[in-house]
Amino acid sequence: MADALAGAAALPGAAAPAAHASLRGVTRVYPGAAPVHALGPIDLDLARGEFFSVVGPSGCGKSTLIDVQAGLAAPSAGEVMFEGKPVAGKVPDGIGVVFQEDASFPWLTVTDNIAFGLRRAGVDPAEVRRRVEYAIGFMGLRDFARAYPVQLSGGMRQRVCIARTLVLQPRLILLDEPFGALDQQTRLLMGDELLRLWRETRATVLLITHALDEAAMLSDRVGAMSARPGRFVDLLKTGWPRERDSSLVAEAGFGAITARLWSHLRAESLKAMGGAPP
């Protein structure tokens, strides 16, 4: 039953040496009378099964990065690849996105929300039921299966959205500040769940966050981005074991990682706020 969410393992060519997803020289400029250069140029290779986080000051183009990798927005220049094929104009099969805003459908129950994508894809009803039930249990939503989103807390609703993406068995999960609206304790616990989910599905994860501790605790690698136009100013490996959870915050190395991230971000955040580093 535990394989109900796992997509990656079943994929042929899992041992291929090429990056699972990659961005090459990607920029994004919003055209107009005064064009806004939002992102890049960015180069990034995500290894299969890797947990990669991006931190950066607000307005640095982090969300644009997700949109471009997902195929929700076209890059102004550069090349976006997923599983060896270029991403062009539409979200490729195998990519799932969880957004920062509450994206649950208020007119559907929790169960129907989670089953939404599977039903659209014409998956056999018995299989839909199996996967949805598993995801509901996995996300701790069992008591709310027939509730509407309006009856749930913000954290619960975000779980519904994660579950809705998860049942599609994506091999690359893109998360755009999914816990941005939640309180600190809930965030840490949701982080634990995310790690559990990542181990179980063996998917590749790209997480955008503004929380340094979240990035430091969850990731294999963290990329720190500059103020707009966003570029990577640092890529660091955390070296955590695959089996890990929020108790990492007590580790000696944890402080060093957040400190290094902050040393980059402090200057960049000041720039983003319009000030200069002292």
């Binding site: 539409k90 990519i95 799932g96 996105v97 957004f99 994206a103 459908f105 994508g117």
Partner: peptide
């Protein structure tokens, strides 16, 4: 209509008509 719901529709690769009637 929250723009994020349209993004969800695109993530599910819904066509124009299905986006209209389902979202």
């Amino acid at each position: 209509v929250p723009p994020v719901l349209i993004k969800v529709a695109r993530m599910h690769r819904l066509g124009r008509l299905r986006t209209l009637f389902l979202v």
